[in-house]
Amino acid sequence: MKKCFVGFLALVAVCSGCGTSQMASGDPGAIFAGAAIGGNVGGAIGGLIGDNNGGWRGGYRGSAIGTIIGTIAGAAIGNAVSAPKQEEYSYRIERTETCKPKPEAYPAPSVFDNLRIRNIRFIDDDRDHIITSGESSKVIFEIMNEGNQTIYNVVPMVTEITGMKRIYISPPVMVEQIAPRNGVKYTANISAGDRIKTGDITIRVAVADGNGQQYDWQEFSLSTRR
């Protein structure tokens, strides 16, 4: 009974500390479970060590100390396992209305019609969402195949369509294939040369076939600063 009370006090101390620290991000259930298991294991090991060194009194003290240490360690492990992972800070581009070329541009249906662009992110070096002279940034997005056939030779495209000078975007890399109901994540690097103009640019994110025909795209604006 006393051993359980010692473990309870240790657990209360751990949880009260969590309330004011970053450790509190884990699942409370996992933290309590880890603390209970750690307390039991620590108490058992501490008791055996204490018995060998100081008889039953040493065993009792060893068990109490082991319970405290095991409870704290178990709670920490439970928290670490269940804590959510922080995503890289980025500027999320909200999807606008679906953009499609005019029907006369490709009258025949194509499997590429099933490709969709999702989850666009823009990340720049200083995280202010403004492209400044000499700064590097990147656009990250997903291309999903919502159809029932594998689509081959998919070309992700990122272009600057306002004609701003000294904005450099990495060339597209063809994706060999995207299976049905699957997708790929693509990253394009953007770098700004020295002395770019202060203003606004428009970035187009698109998906095309091997001939350059675009089937889904989105556009968003970013500010630039010299």
Rank of each mutant, 00 (worst) to 15 (best):
V14G: 05
V14S: 07
V14E: 03
C15P: 05
S16F: 14
S16K: 13
G17P: 08
C18D: 13
C18I: 14
C18N: 15
G19P: 04
T20H: 13
T20D: 14
Q22L: 10
Q22D: 05
Q22S: 08
A24K: 15
A24I: 13
A24V: 12
S25P: 00
S25H: 00
S25Q: 04
G26W: 00
G26A: 04
G26T: 04
G26D: 03
G26Y: 01
D27G: 10
P28D: 03
P28A: 05
P28F: 01
I31V: 15
I31R: 09
F32M: 14
A33L: 14
A33M: 14
A33H: 11
A33Y: 07
A33P: 07
G34W: 07
G34R: 11
A35P: 02
A35Q: 02
A35K: 03
A36C: 14
A36G: 11
A36D: 06
I37A: 11
G38M: 07
G38R: 03
G39C: 02
N40D: 01
V41E: 04
G42E: 04
G42Q: 06
G42V: 06
G43I: 04
G43W: 00
G43C: 05
G43S: 08
A44Y: 01
A44L: 06
A44E: 04
A44R: 02
I45E: 05
L48E: 08
L48H: 08
L48F: 02
D51W: 03
D51F: 01
D51S: 08
D51T: 07
N53P: 00
G55H: 14
G55A: 14
W56E: 13
W56M: 13
W56P: 04
W56S: 14
R57W: 08
R57V: 13
G58F: 06
G59H: 02
G59P: 00
G59A: 12
Y60S: 13
R61C: 09
G62N: 07
G62T: 08
G62C: 10
G62A: 11
S63L: 06
S63R: 07
S63P: 01
A64Y: 04
A64K: 07
I65L: 10
I65G: 03
